[in-house]
Amino acid sequence: MSTTSAGLESRRRTKAGIGPLDYSRRLWIRLVLIGTFLFLYAPIVTLIAFSFNDSRRNIVWRGFTMKYYEKALNNDGLIEAFVNSLTIAFVSTIVSVILGAMVAILLWRFRFPGQAPYEGTVMLPIVIPEICMGVAMLAFFARIGWPAGLPWPLNLGSIIIAHISFSFPFVAVVVRARLAGFNRELEEAARDLGASQWQTFRDVMIPYMRPGLVAGGLLAFTLSLDDFVITFFTSGPDTVTFPVKVYSMVRFSVTPEVNAASTVLIIVTVLLTAIALWLQNRTQPKDM
């Protein structure tokens, strides 16, 4: 009896002590937070943990080992796929950023007949189901007779084109949103001070668009790196990417080797993202 009343007492006290905006001190918010983290990160943590598992079947924990990292590093097929994936991601990101930025500027700057349909068409790859894009790409490359058996890295051409086609609209959307807040007088001021069109673009527009370019580039990079469906349809036997390779490995059995390779990929992406964000924060002034 006395304990209950004491408990109530303290409950009431804490309740009264929580301000209306002290959300982090409310129990249910904490539960949601913990639940979210569990849901998001438990699989990833498990993946990383089991990459050190000393067991071929990789179902129960049998002790710590690094040997699957070694094995993965010595797996030429896996390394080749990894290099392919990074190459594709880099090239398609660079092209996507340039193309996406150009589309964004075109849509923002100019009024031309058919603008609305054009905008819709450009953004279409964002909403078209990936599987359809994949089939379309397959049909397209077969129809135009895309040459097979080119030397590396030219043999990645078809995959790179496919990746550009679905990632540049994302860049365009992000950069366009950024441009919506641009003060045209900044551009005119540069022109007025004697800058040519190109100098104005380089010195005023690009610095302003930079956060959009970085964010769009990150999106394009990660989209390309982990794309499976479209790549699957456009890759040949000698142009295997990392996701496709992992898929083929997993079809036989989930070994710690797959986990090890995936862990390396996670680390690479997280590092690249962190660097990009750091660069962006360092150079980004407040908007006015």
Binding site: N183, E185, L186, E188, A189, D192, P207, T283
Partner: peptide
């Protein structure tokens, strides 16, 4: 041979 002071000042923020 003219220069302008804009209404928003248009000072380059970066």
């Amino acid at each position: 041979p003219v220069n302008m002071v804009f209404q928003s000042y248009a000072v380059f923020p970066h």
